[in-house]
Design a protein around this nucleic acid. Structure first.
Lengths: 221, 221
DNA sequence: CCAAAAGTGTTCATCCTACACCCATGG
DNA sequence: CCATGGGTGTAGGATGAACACTTTTGG
């Protein structure tokens, strides 16, 4: 039995924001006070606010859209606070959303921005956090329709496929991929054509969440 | 921006111990101080002890064996402490282990005991915690060899099958189940026969962790 | 006219499922 | 001798993987 009164902790909620742009995965950071290190968005937990609510608060303060997917990863191990006067505990979430749509805090000098995941110069611990989040995302993206949070409402199947290839880090067969999509009636082809990435133009598709909820066809990609 | 200094929290680690006996899933509880409610084992987090270490400490104080599987589920939402003087946060783990092998704390009156999961009279919140843990276990039991933590070192294939049926809550085809097991060379038939549950007797099998680690054959049941 | 991305079906192999009967033995 | 759980194989269907060519059009 450990003696002593229990330790009291500051609790912070930390969010790893993932976006997708220019055929790359992006991460939302700001510069740390000192050298070329990054910080992830975080907030202190207050009173009996929920963790989820606190995490959504972070997202709300940074993103213009409130169309994002947010999920707790886990509680991390306690650390001493910077001033060595106590301990803190951090609970990490990941967020999937569109890359643009940042609220520019013109008054705040050290504001957040998107960096591409590959060339991110992260600390060892940050790398681990991101890798853990990516593992979860990889597992889930094949069985739940969460990829659509990373894409605009209208997207081409090539975009969707590239996103899968990027996250899973394996090539995906175009024909099999499209075949599977055709079976899911909640991924709907529109009449609109996107000509920004090819001369011929590609159909734009939309994911219909209401139809997905009602559908008996399981999501699998 | 919320003003005020950040709130300080007591942090406790809570473990849901799952066991398997008499063809039932069991849960480790003790009686709450008051009426017929149960408590789950928990411990306060101290200093910069790790969450995992603290959870293992709980297991070590309760179980004779240190052969168990332990995994964080998530951090729960903060609550006011009972004396209303502050807030606390709880991080939940689940533990898979053998049902017997409890350390009897003869001095402690309110010690822990196994109840069967079905007839457990849990509070709504506890039910949710247990259901969340079971979801994780269900997902994982088919792709990672964690079921063996719930069985003795030597077990019959019928025992293993019943355990799967119990956790997944669906019937399992005996022949297909055994076929899959035969393919996994790290689940080894021994020469020993268990005659406790049939007149003919059933072969006892053992899961070989070292062989599993080296094997290229993926676990899938 | 050609480069570049969009779009489209079939075949084969593999995996999964369903299914029923004999065996060994303690009582 | 019989009730009880232990143990075994096959055939058909479903699923998933591999694969190459035609279309469109802006430049």
């Amino acid at each position: 039995m450990p003696s002593s009164n229990s330790t009291l902790y500051q609790v912070s909620v930390c969010c790893l924001f993932f976006g997708y742009k220019d055929n790359e995965l992006k991460l939302l950071v700001r510069d740390a006070d000192k050298s070329g290190r990054y910080c992830f968005p975080e907030a202190k937990l207050h009173g009996d606010n929920s963790l989820y609510g606190t995490a959504c608060g972070i997202a709300g303060r940074l993103l213009k859209t409130n169309d994002y997917y947010i999920k707790q990863i886990r509680a991390g191990d306690p650390k001493e606070t910077e001033n060595h006067e106590g301990f803190q505990l951090s609970v990490t979430y990941y967020v999937l959303t569109l890359c643009d749509d940042l609220i520019t805090e013109d008054d705040e000098p050290d504001s957040y921005y998107w960096i591409s995941l590959n060339q991110a110069n992260l600390s060892g611990e940050q790398k681990m956090q991101v890798e853990t989040a990516l593992k979860r995302i990889r597992r889930k993206i094949g069985i739940r329709p969460i990829a659509f949070y990373l894409l605009p409402k209208l997207f081409t199947l090539s975009q969707l496929q590239h996103l899968y290839e990027l996250i899973l880090n394996i090539p995906v067969d175009k024909r099999n991929f499209r075949k599977r999509i055709c079976e899911m009636n909640y991924i709907q082809q529109t009449e609109l054509i996107d000509k920004s990435s090819s001369k011929r133009g590609a159909h734009l598709y939309a994911f219909n969440m209401e139809m997905f909820r009602r559908s008996r066809i399981v999501f699998k990609l």
